[in-house]
Structures are given as structure tokens and as C-alpha cells.
Write a protein that binds this DNA or RNA. Structure first.
Lengths: 147, 147
DNA sequence: TTAGCTGCAAATAGTTTGCCTGTAG
DNA sequence: CTACAGGCAAACTATTTGCAGCTAA
């Protein structure tokens, strides 16, 4: 997960104090390649800095969401997951067998959504498209997914 | 919300006993035009039959979901909402100002999703598309949405 | 009769909050 | 110095479960 700028700068820009817990939490987020939920994030943070309370993780996450730095997602399983909001918009492909989340983007789908909203007399505020998938049964060379 | 068949038949078909609480819960579901969550459903059920426990509502809902009669949705707000699974597939347009949920379907979007999954070497298990919208600012006759 | 239901209350899981101490700026 | 943060534990919300009595088939 990549932040648009340096952690210190991000805090400064949004009027947040650069504290120890915050540094660690944002550091762990920055180094995550997946979409961890708050509990998992806290677990990772605790490995580096055992004293950090999970309440602090939640407070930091909602603060960052409020500031528009992070986006919250809920992939159907009750828990909230986060990712940086500064990058290009994308949707998600969720592998139901492994839980892996793959990002993708389709301008054509975006355009169709816009059209549908307009047809109903609405403007789009945001949207969420999640495709739950499993590896294709058909053997095809190049998937790199040998069982 | 319309069930594919009579409540009694549905129960029989899935080997479920047609009990008082179940009758009321399914009745209320059948008469709902919105997508109530378990707590709201329990509230409505209680108006008709005050003794029904919310645990029974949850148990009935997950039982019906398990049997494929209902589909569970989570529109970002922690709570699970349900709708009948027998009808044609559709996606949701959520009016963020009123909370109203409007159903729609776009074969073209469906087709594109399929294409994307295939490109990544996956088969679609299911998907979820939610477009969060607000009434268009542009005045257009015929929307029937006078503020 | 009896496996399947139910109500009740207690248990979970995820998340939020109050309070009082700690510290970045 | 002091307003913002953090730790801790209690509070909350949504949902699940154990148990003992009830009932549809």
C-alpha cells in the first residue's frame, strides 16, 4: 500500500501529530501488500511495538479515512478493511478460495454505471464492484496456478 | 419481496417445519418492499407476534440463506440485509440521502464482469455492484422527485 | 414420540467511547 | 504549557450459541 507522500508530511498536511503509534501504524500500512482489517493490522503493529492499543489503531484508521487518506471497504465479512485513497480508482476481484484480493479497473464498466445512474435521475457519489471468483476449471497455460 | 412459491411449500421443499414464528417471519419478508436488516425485521415481526425472539429471526434467516431461498447483502453499514434469491439477478443503486435501495440490471455490465474474470483466469462465483448516488442536481422533468 | 424449533440469556466479534494520564509541537 | 493522543477497560452493536422446554409431523 503506497501513500501519496511521506508519513510525516501526511500528518503535517492534515494537522495530525506524528506520534510513535501513528508512525508504526502507517508504516505497517505502507508496507502491506494486502488489505488487512483492523485486528490484523493491530497484530502486525504489535510485533513492532507491543504497547499499541487496538483502540489507537481504530482511531488512527478512522482519522485517516476522515481526512481522505484511506478508504474503508467491507467485503461481506463484517470486518472493515482499508486501502490508500490517493491511487487511481479500481474495483476488486476476490478469490473465494484463497481470500486474495486482486485490483482491476474497467473504464467501460465505469461509463455504464454513470449511464445507469443518470437514467434514474441520480449522480454517482461512489460505487463498489466486487467480483467473487474461483480459479477457472479450464486448464489454460500461463495462469501460473498449478494445484 | 416475492418468494418463488407459497411459504408452506417452501418449507416443505427444504425440510423445514412450518412453525408459527417462521410463518410470521416469512410473511413479513414477503410483504417487505425494502431490504430490512435482521433487527428491523424482528421489529416488524414483533408487531404481529410479540413473543418471537430475535435469535429465531437470525436462525430463520441463515437457514433460508443456507437453503438458497434468501441472499445476504451488506451495504457497508455492518448490518446484513436480505432479499429473495429466486428472482432475476440485479444490482443496487443506493440513494445516500434517503437510504433507499433501487434495483437495476445491466446485461452489458454482467458481460464485462465475466470478461474481466476470464482474463484473470477465474470463473465468477458471484458479484456485487452497488452504486451510491444522490438525486441529480440538474432539474429534469419527469424524475418525480421534487424537493 | 421425537427431531427439529423456540425463547432466553449468556457468549462472541468487531468497533467505539469515557476517562484520565502522557507528550508533540 | 496545553490541546491533541494514547492506554485501558467498559460499553455498544450485530450476530451466534448453549440449554432446557415445546411442538409439528
Amino acid at each position: 500500500m503506497r501513500f501519496s507522500k511521506d508519513i510525516a508530511d501526511l500528518c503535517k498536511e492534515h494537522g495530525l501529530r506524528l506520534t510513535g503509534p501513528r508512525k508504526v501504524i502507517m508504516q505497517v500500512l505502507a508496507e502491506s501488500t494486502d488489505h488487512p482489517d483492523a485486528v490484523e493490522l493491530h497484530r502486525r503493529v504489535s510485533e513492532i511495538s507491543p504497547g499499541v492499543a487496538i483502540a489507537t489503531v481504530y482511531r488512527t484508521l478512522s482519522l485517516l479515512e476522515e481526512k481522505g487518506v484511506l478508504e474503508k471497504h467491507t467485503f461481506g465479512d463484517g470486518r472493515a478493511r482499508f486501502e490508500t485513497a490517493d491511487q487511481d480508482h479500481h474495483d476488486h476481484l476476490i478469490n473465494v478460495e484463497t481470500g486474495d484480493v486482486i485490483e482491476f479497473r474497467s473504464d467501460e464498466i465505469e461509463r455504464l454505471q454513470d449511464e445507469i445512474a443518470r437514467q434514474h435521475g441520480f449522480d454517482i457519489v461512489s460505487h463498489r464492484l466486487e467480483i467473487y471468483v474461483r480459479p477457472s476449471k479450464k486448464v489454460r497455460k500461463g495462469t501460473g496456478k498449478a494445484p
